[in-house]
Design a protein around this nucleic acid. Structure first.
Length: 363
DNA sequence: CAGCCGTGGAC
DNA sequence: TGTCCAAGGCT
């Protein structure tokens, strides 16, 4: 059931109330100091499916190492991935690199200001293009993310699941129609800021909300029920066995393939399966076939759970010490001296294991 | 369009 | 311990 739209006076009041609230209550964030397009861009990529609190340390470290887009275009890919270590969704950092090269080579180092141009850049979709156009250049381009979706659904009492195609179209329409033409930067940020700090998914602070007098969900006591949540999928269980191979104070690492989970990061030589059955034997075969290493693995020394979008993987670690290394290292396998391991970009759970492991045999 | 891509935090 | 979700994009 669709509500009538806000009339001009109601919309005007909502806009002014929200802008006033944002002016007073916005968080101090680094890219808000001067809204440099480069900084806005990096912040928006980091913020994809990631909360401010989580990305802030990564953002600061990134800007210290790479203060401008030229530095990104000329940087070593290994450095970029290392700076991204722990943030997840590693495809994002590869796309940052590609976009930096495109802007330096095809746009003279200047960020395009039009949504249509921004959309041509890898890693920049409808949301991010609108965010850069509005936040960096104050253009009246709409944005629709999880926060804005929640705020709009509640204010307008949209009870159908927002992922439905027609609902999405309506939300984009509202997101555009509500923007005060001269205040796009502050208004778009205000919508998101409200969603992130007040209009929370559960237990929202409605009494602190500057636009609750316009909110139909609040008026009708349906705030907790809107937006409708989609039925979650049960993550599948998988098992992985990792070989921790030590030789002359070095450990053997393998680089993960592109276009795969955790692409471009390093890990231990390992095998994965739907069942735990014969996993250790499979790993031994794997080591002989792909690394020229014929060994009998020791007892499992550690176990952890690696959870990601669709899977929960039980990871076991099997140690072995070699007198001589097997096959020579190549681009995807490398013997790494123990102190140099911190230079590798590793998935978080493996980084944590190594810290634990090295601590063990210091004793 | 449904599935894929990470991780930490809140509850 | 389990579940959900977060400033999405891409295939």
């Amino acid at each position: 059931m669709k509500q009538r739209d806000l009339n001009a006076n109601e919309l005007e009041d909502l806009q002014q109330s929200l802008l006033k609230w944002f002016k007073e209550h916005q968080r101090k964030l680094p890219w808000r100091e001067n809204y440099e397009p480069y900084q806005v861009w990096i912040s928006e990529i980091m913020l994809q499916q990631t909360q401010v609190k989580t990305m802030l340390p990564f953002y600061r470290r990134w800007m210290e190492a790479l203060p401008g887009i030229r530095e990104v275009a000329e940087a070593d890919e290994e450095l970029l991935i290392k700076l991204w270590e722990g943030l997840g969704y590693y495809r994002r950092v590869r796309n940052i690199r590609k976009t930096a090269e495109m802007i330096c080579n095809e746009y003279g180092g200047q960020f395009p200001e039009q949504v249509a141009e921004l959309l041509k850049l890898p890693g920049i979709g409808r949301y991010t293009a609108g965010a850069i156009a509005s936040i960096a250049f104050n253009q009246p381009a709409p944005i629709l993310d999880g926060n804005v979706t929640r705020v709009l659904c509640r204010v307008r009492k949209i009870e159908d699941p927002p992922q439905l195609g027609d609902v999405g179209k309506e939300l984009w329409r509202l997101a555009e129609a509500w923007i005060p033409k001269e205040e796009a930067r502050n208004f778009n940020q205000a919508l998101m800021e409200l969603g992130a700090t007040v209009c929370l998914p559960s237990s929202p602070n409605c009494l602190l909300c500057p636009i609750r007098q316009h909110c139909l969900a609040f008026e009708l006591g349906k705030v907790e029920a809107i937006p409708a949540s989609k039925p979650g999928k049960v993550p599948r269980q998988r098992y992985r066995a990792c070989a921790v191979i030590r030789c002359n104070k070095k450990l053997l690492f393998s680089k993960r393939l592109e276009n795969s989970l955790l692409e471009g990061l390093w890990e231990f030589p390992s095998v994965e399966s739907d069942t735990k059955k014969k996993l250790k034997g499979t790993l031994e075969e794997h080591l002989e076939r792909n690394y020229g290493i014929k060994v009998t693995l020791g007892k499992e020394i550690h176990q952890l759970e690696h959870r990601y979008t669709n899977f929960k993987t039980r990871v076991g670690f099997y140690p072995v010490t070699l007198e001589v290394p097997g096959k020579k290292s190549n681009e995807t396998t490398s013997w790494v001296e123990i102190p140099k391991i911190e230079d590798l970009a590793l998935p978080r759970p493996y980084r944590r294991f190594i810290e634990w492991y090295l601590e063990q045999f210091r004793n």
